[in-house]
């Protein structure tokens, strides 16, 4: 039964750059259809950890990962696992909106097409844009360049294109940090809608955002060897109201850094 509740689990996951260990011994069980936030001071390895979840760190030549990352009992860093398949199942939204220099329609359709989507493309595009709460704003200009959209719209487009490949998990790396407060609010509202269908892992700088939007929170901190680690992982309410770790308390109450 346990497996059904958890979308993804890490088992003593460590991330190394050459001889340097950037993230050490992470054990997390990420619950299905919930929003899990990763918080912590800058440079503590939040983004590095997040990127490990869909093997984006593969592109850093010196980077290697030890421990296990389990999706449906399969280790994503196992021998026969294809990183391209992994990323199909675990999508990602980045800090700065990065739509492709293509039309709005193509931005959504492209990922589905390369991944062998055989259904009706128009429907998929519409549904994805609706899911990302963008449809009403762009339905009349689907063939226009995605660069014509505002930053907030671009970010929702990036969410829409991720939804279009129907991943199990969506990773979000500070998705609102480059946006204005109103766009940020819309993204947060959208996340609440999305969690009905997806598991969301979000890295954020913004503690109010984590407190507002997430169900679970992982607190990261670097140790004296400058390796980051999860020092506390709990219900978001618990983290913000009665943290067990002194360092977490210092951080969430703003007494740190």
């Amino acid at each position: 039964m346990e497996n059904t509740n958890y979308a993804i689990e890490t088992n003593n996951l460590s991330i190394h750059y050459g001889n340097f260990t950037a993230v050490k011994g992470v054990n997390m069980k990420v619950e299905r259809q919930k929003i899990t936030a990763i918080i912590g001071p800058s440079g503590c390895g939040k983004s590095t950890l997040l990127r490990a979840f869909n093997r984006m760190n593969d592109f850093v030549p010196s980077c290697h990962v030890t421990g296990e990352l389990l999706l449906d009992n399969q280790n994503l860093y196992g021998k026969n696992v294809d990183p391209v398949e992994v990323r199909r199942k675990i999508g990602m939204v980045f800090q700065k909106p990065n739509p492709f220099p293509k039309s709005i329609y193509e931005n959504i359709a492209w990922g589905a097409r390369i991944n062998g989507f055989k259904g009706k493309m128009d429907e998929l595009v519409e549904q994805s844009l609706r899911s990302a709460a963008l449809w009403d704003e762009v339905k009349d200009k689907l063939q226009q360049s995605a660069y014509a959209l505002s930053g907030g719209q671009q970010q929702r487009l990036c969410i829409a294109r991720t939804i279009a490949i129907q991943p199990e998990i969506i990773l979000m790396d500070e998705p609102a940090s480059a946006l204005d407060p109103i766009s940020t609010l819309r993204i947060e509202e959208l996340m609440q809608e999305l969690k009905k269908n997806y598991t969301i892992l979000i890295v954020t700088h913004n503690m109010q955002q984590a407190a507002r939007a997430s169900d679970y929170t992982a607190m990261m901190m670097i140790d004296d060897q400058r390796a980051g680690g999860v020092i506390e992982f709990d219900d978001t309410k618990a983290i913000f109201t009665r943290p067990k770790d002194k360092r977490t308390e210092d951080y969430v109450t703003g007494r740190f850094g």
Partner: peptide
Amino acid sequence: LREGAYAMGA
């Protein structure tokens, strides 16, 4: 842009 594409399983 490259990362965006890779993240979609390209």
